[in-house]
Simulated scan of single mutants.
Amino acid sequence: MLQVEKISGKKVSDIVVEQIEEWIRSGSVQPGEKLPSVREMCELFDVGRSAVRDALTTLKGRGLVNVKHGEGTFVCHFDTAQLLPDILLVQKSDISKLYQVRKILEAGIAEMAALNATEKQLNIMEKELDELVNAKTLKGWEADYRFHLAIAEASGNEILVDLMDTVSTTTKKGIMACHRIILSDEKLSRDVAEQHIAIYESMKAKDPIKARKAMYNHLTYVEELLDNHLNESGD
């Protein structure tokens, strides 16, 4: 079901634009899918028809939707990266610091989780792993984050979980930025998927040494991926 917030205040059409972009960004509506009608969106957002029409005009100008007269408004096929607000993207200056912390913290967490994970916790990891490996939209980053969080919880140490939570905002930025890059590259997607599978398999085998190594290698790979991407983009 599409999630909306009632709208009030100035620049109503801009807020409608933001909410429709969030539908697209989150995968609630897919490329080629028809959006609700103008009348339906007026009811969903509790706004007038002019606000919805202005919002659709803006989205059309950005190449995100295509208005077909007599048929409706459809989501275009496009690079989902263009929907990411700057605040969600990890900055170049943050990468080294973030991944220093993540490698120190999560490699140790993986080692402990391999020793302590219960069958139920392994099932949770497997569920998140399946979702992130098969993700076809940017929303896969959420399963990726939950996979890493599930490993922390499986460590059996609440302080480690709290430490993960302390850096969660920056970690989420890094994971989302990673998925932004790999979404349109089959080889990179496969590499990252295989790394997560290796982490999970080491947990299932209760092999702490392999778990530490698999996690460290994965985080090093992502750090280099982000760094190279930002160097190429001139950030």
Rank of each mutant, 00 (worst) to 15 (best):
K6D: 05
I7L: 02
K11E: 13
V12Q: 06
V12T: 07
I15V: 15
E18A: 09
E18D: 14
E18Q: 14
I20G: 09
E21D: 12
S28H: 15
E33D: 11
V38L: 05
R39F: 08
E40L: 14
M41S: 02
L44F: 09
L44G: 05
D46K: 05
V47W: 04
G48D: 06
R49C: 08
R49Q: 12
A51R: 01
A55K: 01
L56M: 07
T57L: 15
T58Q: 14
K60F: 12
G61P: 00
G63H: 05
G63N: 14
G63L: 04
G70P: 00
E71I: 06
G72R: 03
F78P: 02
D79R: 14
L84S: 12
P85F: 09
D86I: 11
I87S: 12
S93T: 10
S96R: 11
Q100W: 07
K103Y: 03
K103G: 02
K103I: 04
A107D: 00
I109Y: 00
E119H: 13
Q121S: 10
L122E: 08
N123V: 12
N123T: 15
M125Y: 07
M125C: 06
M125A: 05
K127A: 03
E128Q: 09
E131V: 10
E131T: 04
V133T: 12
N134W: 15
N134H: 09
A135P: 01
A135F: 03
T137V: 13
L138M: 07
L138T: 06
W141Q: 00
A143E: 03
A143N: 03
D144Y: 03
F147K: 00
L149M: 09
A150C: 11
A152T: 01
A154K: 01
G156D: 01
N157S: 13
E158A: 15
E158T: 15
V161S: 08
L163N: 07
M164C: 09
D165F: 04
T169K: 15
T171M: 05
K172R: 07
G174L: 00
G174P: 00
G174D: 00
M176A: 07
C178S: 10
C178V: 06
R180A: 02
I181G: 01
D185E: 14
E186T: 14
E186L: 14
E186R: 13
L188W: 11
A193S: 08
E194P: 05
H196A: 01
I199N: 02
E201Y: 09
S202E: 09
K206D: 11
K210F: 14
K213H: 10
V222Q: 02
V222S: 06
E223S: 02
L226F: 01
N228Y: 06
N228D: 13
H229D: 03
N231I: 15
E232A: 10
S233C: 15
S233N: 12
